[in-house]
Design a protein around this nucleic acid. Structure first.
Length: 376
RNA sequence: GGAAAUAUUGAGCAAUUGGUUGGCUCACCAGACUGUAAAUCUGGCCUCUUAGGAGCUUGUAGGUUCGAAUCCUUCUAUUUCCA
């Protein structure tokens, strides 16, 4: 992997750069659409590639391990071939499932025992086998196996968990060195900063993560319910420590406003289910605020979905028609909303990049944040 | 013309056969959603409300009873059957 830092904003920590991997170059800042089970839900590859056009998407180790399973992914020749996506892919390690499936798992030093949400069977994830699974899935960027702590999280637990995540990180690195690549392209490994909402822990974790000298670094354990201000404080503490010449990935963030604010704090990569999930649930993100397209007020609003026409669906369909599709529960409505939202998210980070390169990011960001903080 | 059945909120049903229904599903109206157990979940949905409550309610008008959606009678409407 190669990271080239092209420009840093004068009035903030915002950066523009490029990450080059074997499946192409990623222009940062970037938003990575989430495709948990080898599909960005509701979007065909053609729309994803031609209309939304991200340089990288996400997959999830836990979910892919359960279905279709490692043997099938290996037989397919890796996830790229399996889902016919020839650009970059990043897989999350399953660390988030330690948090989101908390009622179905047990954490020990050795690893995490999960009860499958699909058939109730038990599975153990360790730093070692998660590395092997990610080798088999074959993403370009693979993540350390960590514990994503909940919010709120008491100090004692957060500290203990952070240290365990650090110990797990060592095991990930040791094991990865012993595990050969399965396909004919490289994989790069990102460790993850934890420490909940405690500045001293975040600082300590960032220092530790920086010390392992990975090609890129991630921040986890945020956007789990804490107030946005607290999230920004943590990002600020961490980005001050993480190396400037490596990409920084803030996991699971966020709203369009969260993304702009974190870009300003020096984050290069984002991912979030929000544009896809909220889209499927009838919420549209626009440059002028959010729209709940299911609301009655759109019933006879025949104006186009979004006059900005970022993706073709924006002007191809009216708000009233889209509301109708949601009302009658037609899948097309969810598809249109998803394409619109992802198109908007990718537009937003590309605009951010343009403004960083042009040198007026902060003024543009402040204007956008104000403008988007509305409900239409 | 005769006989029978039925009538509960916008719709469809339920209510331990006389024991406190404003119960369920759908529809509708809102809200939520942040490294996806999510085409999901939560709330509202007779009226008023100062949000704690208050009031009215089982087609209609009476009756029996301590007590009626439930039993009896009147009328109305709908459905089925027979002529």
């Amino acid at each position: 992997m190669q990271f080239k830092l092209e420009s840093t904003d004068v009035a903030s920590q915002a950066r523009a750069g490029t990450i080059t991997l074997d499946h192409g170059t990623i222009e940062t800042p970037i938003f990575m659409p989430v495709g948990t089970v080898a599909t960005v839900k509701g979007v065909h590859q053609r729309e994803l590639k031609e209309d939304i056009n991200p340089d990288v998407i996400l997959g999830n180790t836990y979910h892919l391990y359960l279905r279709p399973g490692v043997p099938i992914l290996e037989k397919a020749g890796g996830i790229h071939k399996f889902m016919n996506w020839d650009r970059n892919i990043l897989t999350d390690s399953g660390g988030y499932q330690v948090y989101s499936l908390s009622s179905n798992r047990k954490i020990k030093e050795e690893g995490v025992k999960f009860k499958s949400h699909i058939d109730g069977s038990y599975h153990v994830f360790t730093p070692e086998n998660v590395m092997e699974i990610q080798r088999s899935i074959g993403a370009d960027i693979i993540m350390a196996f960590d514990e994503c702590t909940p919010y709120p999280c008491d100090y004692k637990y957060a500290k203990r968990s952070m240290h365990m995540t650090h110990r797990w990180l060592n095991r990930c690195i040791n094991h990865l060195e012993k595990t050969p690549l399965k396909y004919d392209y490289n994989q790069t490994f990102f460790p993850i900063v934890q420490g909940s909402t405690y500045k001293d822990l975040r600082k300590q974790s960032a220092e530790y993560i920086a010390s392992v000298g990975a090609e890129g670094n991630a921040i986890g354990g945020l956007s789990v319910g804490e107030p946005a201000e607290e999230m920004y404080e943590m990002t600020e503490v961490v980005t001050a420590i993480l190396p400037k010449d490596k990409p920084r990935y803030l996991m699971g963030v966020g709203t369009p406003i969260n993304i702009l604010e974190n870009i300003a704090l020096g984050i290069d990569m984002f991912d979030c289910v929000m544009p896809t999930r909220n889209g499927r649930n009838g919420m549209l993100f626009t440059a002028h605020g959010t729209i709940n397209i299911k609301n009655k007020k759109w019933e006879d609003d025949f104006s186009e979905i979004d006059e900005m026409n970022i993706t073709w669906v924006d002007t191809a369909y009216s708000k009233a028609y889209l509301r109708h599709l949601f009302t009658v529960n037609e899948m097309l409505g969810r598809q249109i909303a998803t394409i619109h939202n992802l198109g908007f998210y990718l537009w937003l980070v590309r605009e951010a990049r343009k403004h960083i390169l042009a040198g007026d990011f902060s003024t543009w960001k402040n204007m956008m944040v104000k403008q988007m903080d509305k409900r239409l």
